[in-house]
Write a protein that binds this DNA or RNA. Structure first.
Lengths: 205, 205
DNA sequence: TAGATTGTTAATCGATTAACAATC
DNA sequence: TAGATTGTTAATCGATTAACAATC
């Protein structure tokens, strides 16, 4: 990564991507920052600022080529390369993620599902047998793992995260309701559903 | 709500609540903004600023009483009142949410599960029979619904959201990968998992 | 009382918006 | 060429951090 991109910008990129996907599907050929700003309810200025972080994708007097911009943002987001994902935790959330239809579409592939609980091991989820965590060291030796989705209860989550890190995994998609403290070179993306629900609760009370 | 609280502050409140829950469980009686800041990796200044939005919960020379602050934040987040939640979409994500163990704990109760797909209707999820969307109008007449969790594929989501709104539902916890345009008095809290995954993908590429 | 720590005001920093020269 | 729209610089706005008087 060249210059540092602010978290605020990063957070908006997937949303641009979603809108551009729809525009591509609708066979729209070009769009100006102004038109897009109306659809997305953000300022045109912000769109141009955000995109300019990554280079000039537009053309004066014309706007942006939809297909091209879609592909560029996909590339920025790393969607041009396949990512191998393992799921740790074969509960309801793990199952939901494993079955997530758009996974392949966005270039993510579930290559393994693991659990600590013996009653889960051996079950089949999404055509894949749940393996024991004991098998994980051997698995990571033989298979490159880009991302581990962590969907365990919070009691186990911290210890298992440490194990994942010790096995060399550099990215954790964390669904456990706990904050993980990780080394500098490990990236964590949190999905704290209870936090989200509490925010909603706040807004209605 | 008295004065306007910034989204940035609202977003941090559930995290404070989580840490205070742990402190309560650990039987810690009091904590200073400085101690808490070390645990949470935020500045003490921010903690004091955030909390002062809602009133003075601390005491000079003493800090904050953990139990009291926990309860105050719970009250701020609306966790002192039970919220009735219906789940729209009995797929994997709907099932995961229905089975989410901390729901009751945080004062949310699932009172109904609905789906449009006929193959889902009649199934039992978490001890509750999945009902047809056709039954929803009668249901909302007879039962007060605080929140609808929307876990449908994006094709249906927008139309169903409109239906929910027409039935008087004021809060939508939206898991569909689409932005909902809603009237002023309706609150939407988005959980865009694909956005989250793309952010992670960005950070590792 | 002396020490500690809050709540709040002021200073800084960063993010968003506005404006416009460059240019397709 | 004239009109449209970008990329970027400057201005504004908001959020975070620092500082400190108030006070337990």
């Amino acid at each position: 990564m060249d210059k540092e991109i602010s978290p605020a910008v990063i957070k908006r990129m997937p949303r641009y991507y979603r809108y551009l996907e729809d525009l591509v599907a609708a066979k729209v050929e070009r769009i100006s920052s102004n038109e897009l700003s109306e659809q997305m309810h953000v300022t045109a200025s912000q769109i141009r600022q955000d995109l300019s972080n990554f280079g000039g994708f537009g053309q004066q007097g014309y706007g942006y080529n939809v297909k091209n911009l879609h592909d560029e943002i996909g590339r920025i987001l790393g969607l041009d390369e396949m990512h191998n994902v393992i799921i740790i935790g074969a509960g309801n959330m793990g199952t939901a993620i494993a079955n997530y239809v758009r996974f392949e579409d966005l270039s993510f592939k579930v290559t393994g599902i693991f659990d600590v609980a013996s009653d889960k091991i051996g079950r089949t989820i999404c055509g894949r047998e749940v393996q024991s965590m004991d098998e994980l060291p051997a698995f990571t030796e033989e298979n490159h793992v880009d991302i581990a989705a962590l969907t365990l209860p919070r009691d186990n989550a911290v210890a298992v995260a440490d194990e994942l890190i010790s096995l060399g995994i550099k990215a954790i998609w964390n669904f456990a309701h706990v904050d993980l403290n990780v080394p500098e070179d490990v990236v964590v993306q949190n999905v704290h559903l209870s936090d989200s629900l509490m925010q909603l609760s706040f807004k209605i009370s």
